[in-house]
């Protein structure tokens, strides 16, 4: 009997608790009546320093922007279910714009359809979704990975063009991932297009991790040697930094014996640049909060936008590293 009573009490408390939550939410959406916008942001998670910088940037931009009344930020811990749930909550709360950084490309048709029915525009941040669902969002604001590859390619042509055959080692990202595929495509598009005389000595995946970059580079060095290699192109910072360790341990000077291009532009990458171990950094910019807020306001006003809005991204050579280092946010 006592046990039943306790269970009953517990259930009652739970009910009461959830009712209280519901009331809170009702108050929260009262932001609608204010002048600014209420924006729901379903973020991927906090899986990397890049992502953390991205979240910080979006939150800071929303805070500072007068046009934005409130940013409802949901960390989905890399699970699609949590993002879908978050979007449904945003719809219930009648936010003005939904921003989604999708964990995966597929499975969004239903929930984004619901948002459309509710008349809430959706903006994708960073990653994309499958082409069949293109009508369900207004625009995607993100990095143009092919363009990043092209930038690396242009610098290579500029630096090595006209000389003897340029011998290149490449550290690819995770097999089959969009950034790995696109950074490769863009790079060779420029090299082939400009007619650079090059030889790809070897190209393997380092899985975007320092561990992978270092162990693959060790194997490259023992298999091909480094004497004949002119350039190392790493698809991200982490792999590049791992490779630099392997090069140093083999008794070579990274940046001098072998020129190195990395993509991303983290603080650690720039520090290596300042030390002269990296020759060129192509930025993959997570700090697009301000740009995102502009897009959100435009979308809410019903402006026509291209399906893809590239994030503003820079490139940095040896002369820029020291000046740029303090600006790095991740």
């Amino acid at each position: 009997m006592l046990r039943k009573a306790i269970v009953g009490l517990g259930a009652g408390a739970l009910l009461f608790g959830s009712a209280a939550c519901g009331a809170d939410d009702g108050d929260g959406s009262g932001g609608d009546s204010g002048e600014g916008l209420v924006v729901g942001f379903a973020q991927v998670g906090a899986e990397s320093a890049w992502r953390t910088a991205n979240s910080d940037s979006v939150q800071a931009a929303a805070e500072a922007d007068d046009r934005i009344d409130e940013l409802k930020f949901v960390d989905a811990q890399q699970e699609q279910e949590k993002q879908i749930e978050a979007i449904r909550n945003f719809i219930t709360q009648q936010v003005d714009v939904i921003v989604l950084a999708p964990v995966v490309e597929t499975g969004w048709t239903d929930v984004l359809g619901e948002a459309e029915t509710a008349g809430i525009p959706v903006v994708l941040a960073d990653r994309g979704i499958e082409a069949a669902d293109e009508d369900l969002y207004v625009t995607r604001l993100g990095s143009d990975f092919v363009e990043e590859g092209r930038k690396a390619g242009s610098w290579t042509v500029e630096t090595f063009g006209g000389g003897e055959t340029t011998r290149i080692l490449e550290l690819e990202g995770t097999v089959g991932s969009a950034p790995a595929n696109d950074r490769k495509t863009g790079f060779y598009e420029v090299l082939d297009g400009e007619g650079l005389d090059y030889e790809l000595v070897d190209s393997q995946s380092g899985d975007f991790t320092a561990e992978g970059g270092k162990s693959v580079m060790e194997t490259f060095i023992s298999t091909h040697g480094l004497e004949e290699v002119d350039l190392l192109y790493a698809h991200n910072d982490e792999m590049g930094l791992g490779a630099i360790q392997a090069i140093e341990e083999a008794g070579f000077e990274p940046g001098t014996d072998v020129q190195i291009i990395i993509v991303d532009g983290s603080k650690a990458g720039f520090e290596a640049g300042v030390d002269g171990k990296v020759n060129y950094i192509v930025e993959c910019n997570p700090v697009f909060g301000d740009q995102l807020m502009d897009v959100v306001v435009q979308v809410e006003a019903g402006e026509e936008l291209e399906k893809f809005t590239p994030v503003e991204e820079g490139v940095f050579g040896p002369d820029d590293f020291e000046d740029e280092l303090p600006n790095r946010q991740f």
Partner: peptide
């Protein structure tokens, strides 16, 4: 094995 794949010249997709 992981080194062999690189040494033999197979691409990462083969890993």
């Amino acid at each position: 094995l992981e080194d062999t794949i690189i040494n033999v010249g197979l691409s990462s997709q083969w890993q």
